Simulated scan of single mutants.
Amino acid sequence: MTERVTIFEVGPRDGLQSLGLQVPTETKVALIEALSRTGLTKIEATSFVSPRWVPQMADAAEVMAQITRIPAVCYSALTPNLRGMEGAIAARCDEVAIFASASEGFSRANLNCSIEESFERFTPIMERAREVGIPVRGYLSAVIACPYDGGVAPQTVTRWTAKLLEIGCYEVSLGDTIGAGTVETLDAMLDVLLDECPTDKLAGHFHDTHGNARELVATALERGLRTFDASVAGLGGCPYAPGSRGNIDTRLVMEVLEAQGFSHGVDRDALVQAEQIAQGIVG
């Protein structure tokens, strides 16, 4: 049997949040529902964050209330604090995500605190998740390089990845936030990381800033990773990472997987409708 790889669709949250656009709730709902019909099993639908800081996600509860859910799909939300966690619980999210940085500069720009302080904030979220039985995914940003601190040491990435797994995250998504990665730097990071963390607990999250995300996915596949984040029509970027073009396109990830002989379960024809909605959002 062909080995299966999971594509974790992040367009409705990571993609839209970084655009700086006020997308109508009904459009977000239509995008999520179109993605739900493609065969994707993991969709990051929204983010329960302060509307003061991220007005693009102010309608998180409304989005979750209005989508027509498909039982086979896991709908997740980003929850940076306990208040966001409670919002996600009330909205019946299937899982939540927390995010940390592998670099101090990016942590202070994105979270307004040190890396150590960010982990202190995770404690009540993880306790609450255990109480209600919601799985928690971890994001680790700037695993190759940081727009403020430069290159990030593989040992530092390993330390914080292991810490996210230790506190209870079922998986850590490794984010090349500014698309700085090359095959060589990714390999160097994985050489150290995979000595400490199992591949089945890791996911790849690549930005196509320099057009080489395809090679990074192929390299990560060769090293044993079997989950990859992707964004429909390449929506996204990062407002705290200047120059970070969109996340890798979902269709491009599908092409890499197929070329390498893996299955993904996503229907190409069904994906077209979601792509059209995404393209309509950005004009």
Rank of each mutant, 00 (worst) to 15 (best):
E196G: 00
G236H: 01
G234L: 06
L174P: 02
G236D: 02
A162G: 06
H205A: 11
R214G: 02
S173K: 13
L165Y: 07
P198Y: 08
T177V: 11
F206A: 04
L193S: 14
G175S: 15
R214P: 01
D208I: 01
V172H: 14
T199I: 05
G234W: 01
R214M: 04
T185I: 05
G234M: 04
A213S: 05
L221Y: 08
A218T: 05
L194G: 05
H210W: 09
D200V: 03
L225V: 12
L190R: 10
L174S: 11
D208R: 00
E215H: 11
G204M: 07
T219Y: 02
A230I: 12
A188K: 11
L174W: 13
A218E: 14
A162R: 10
T177E: 07
L202R: 01
F228A: 10
D191T: 14
L164H: 05
S173D: 13
I178H: 03
D187P: 01
D187V: 10
G234Q: 05
E196I: 07
Y170F: 15
D200S: 05
L165I: 15
G168R: 09
A203E: 04
A213Q: 01
N212L: 03
A203Q: 07
K201Q: 11
L194N: 08
N212T: 14
H210L: 10
G236K: 00
Y170P: 02
V172I: 15
G236A: 09
E196A: 15
E222Y: 04
L164V: 09
L194W: 04
L186R: 06
D187Y: 04
V172R: 10
L186N: 08
R223E: 08
C169L: 11
R226K: 15
A180Y: 15
N212M: 08
A162L: 06
T199L: 02
L235Y: 05
Y170M: 05
V172A: 12
K163M: 06
A213N: 00
V192H: 06
G204D: 07
L190H: 07
R223G: 14
T219M: 13
H205R: 11
L190N: 07
G211L: 03
A220Y: 03
T219Q: 14
D195M: 11
I178T: 13
Y170D: 12
L174H: 09
D195Y: 02
T199K: 11
V217S: 00
T177Y: 03
K163L: 04
A218I: 10
S231R: 01
A218F: 05
T182H: 05
D187T: 15
C197S: 10
K201S: 09
A218S: 15
A162T: 10
H207L: 03
D229M: 10
G237D: 02
V183M: 09
G236M: 03
D187E: 12
A218Q: 10
E166F: 03
V192M: 10
T209I: 05
C197F: 04
R223P: 06
V172E: 10
A203H: 02
L164S: 03
L193M: 12
L174I: 13
S231Y: 12
T199S: 15
F228R: 08
L186M: 13
L202W: 04
C169D: 14
N212P: 00
P198G: 04
F228P: 03
V217P: 00
A213R: 00
F228Y: 14
G175M: 08
F206C: 03
C169I: 12
Y170V: 14
G179S: 02
S173I: 12
L221G: 12
G181M: 05
E184A: 15
N212F: 01
A230V: 12
A220I: 07
E184T: 06
L174D: 08
D191P: 01
